[in-house]
Computed example of a mutant assay.
Amino acid sequence: MEAKKGYKAIAKNLPMSPTKIRPIADNIRRKPYSEAVAILENLPNKGAKLLKKVVLSAAANALHQNNMLDEDALYIKELFVDNGPIQKRMWPRSRGRADRLLKRSSHISVVVDELGSTGE
């Protein structure tokens, strides 16, 4: 029988490059939920705001699915920032030439779990 994997939240097609979000995600990975939210609230980046939304959603999923859980008992078990679809646009240049403008997007997956769980 497979062990329980935690509570998950996913945000797809976020309009920001994953390379800008990943350094922020590295700051909160494997941290307690309350500490992770405090870190994200104090960072000025757009990526911190996007990550905070997904982390709050994962915690809300955990608390809704299991009424016995406490917010202080949660931690960020897994956090992935993956590439989403890339929109290709034309960028006009001089002498009738053009460059490609790549508008990147991201998929963020967060799994929160209880601190004392034996899911690992």
Rank of each mutant, 00 (worst) to 15 (best):
K46V: 04
N66E: 08
M68G: 03
L40A: 09
K46I: 06
P32D: 06
S57H: 01
S34A: 12
E71H: 01
K31T: 11
Y33P: 07
E41Y: 11
A62S: 05
H64A: 13
A48V: 04
H64T: 15
K31Q: 11
V37L: 15
N67V: 14
E71L: 09
R30P: 12
V55K: 00
Q65I: 12
E41A: 09
V37E: 01
K53D: 09
E35I: 10
N42T: 11
A62V: 12
L56V: 10
N42L: 14
L51G: 01
A60F: 07
L50F: 08
L40F: 14
I39M: 10
G47I: 03
L69S: 02
Q65W: 08
Q65L: 13
A73S: 12
A48D: 04
L50T: 00
L63E: 12
E41N: 14
N42M: 13
I39P: 03
E71K: 10
A60N: 12
K52V: 02
L63N: 05
A60W: 01
N66L: 01
L63Y: 06
L40G: 07
K46Y: 05
Q65K: 11
A73K: 04
P32C: 00
H64L: 14
Y33G: 05
G47E: 06
D70C: 08
S34E: 10
K53H: 03
A36P: 03
P44V: 04
E41G: 03
L69V: 05
M68C: 00
N61L: 06
H64E: 15
D70L: 09
L74C: 08
N45F: 13
A73F: 08
V37H: 05
K52L: 14
E41T: 01
H64N: 14
K52P: 00
P32K: 11
K31M: 14
H64F: 11
N66S: 02
R30N: 15
N67Q: 14
E35Q: 13
V55F: 03
K46E: 03
A73D: 13
E35D: 12
D72N: 15
K49W: 02
I39Q: 03
E35N: 01
A59L: 11
L51Y: 08
I39S: 00
L63T: 05
L51C: 01
D70E: 13
I39G: 02
L43C: 01
K46P: 00
D72E: 15
P44C: 10
N45A: 07
E71F: 01
A59Q: 06
A60K: 12
V55L: 10
K52G: 10
G47M: 10
N66Y: 04
R30A: 15
Y75K: 01
A36L: 03
L56M: 10
K31E: 09
L56S: 09
D72A: 14
E35V: 13
P32V: 00
K31L: 14
N45Q: 11
N61T: 11
A58M: 04
E71T: 03
L63M: 12
L50A: 15
V54L: 07
L40S: 08
A59H: 04
A59P: 01
I39L: 08
I39A: 04
R30H: 15
A36G: 06
K49G: 10
N67I: 14
A73V: 07
V37Y: 06
S34C: 10
Y75C: 00
N61H: 10
E41L: 12
L43I: 11
N67M: 11
L51T: 00
A48S: 14
I39V: 08
A58C: 08
S57L: 07
K49M: 13
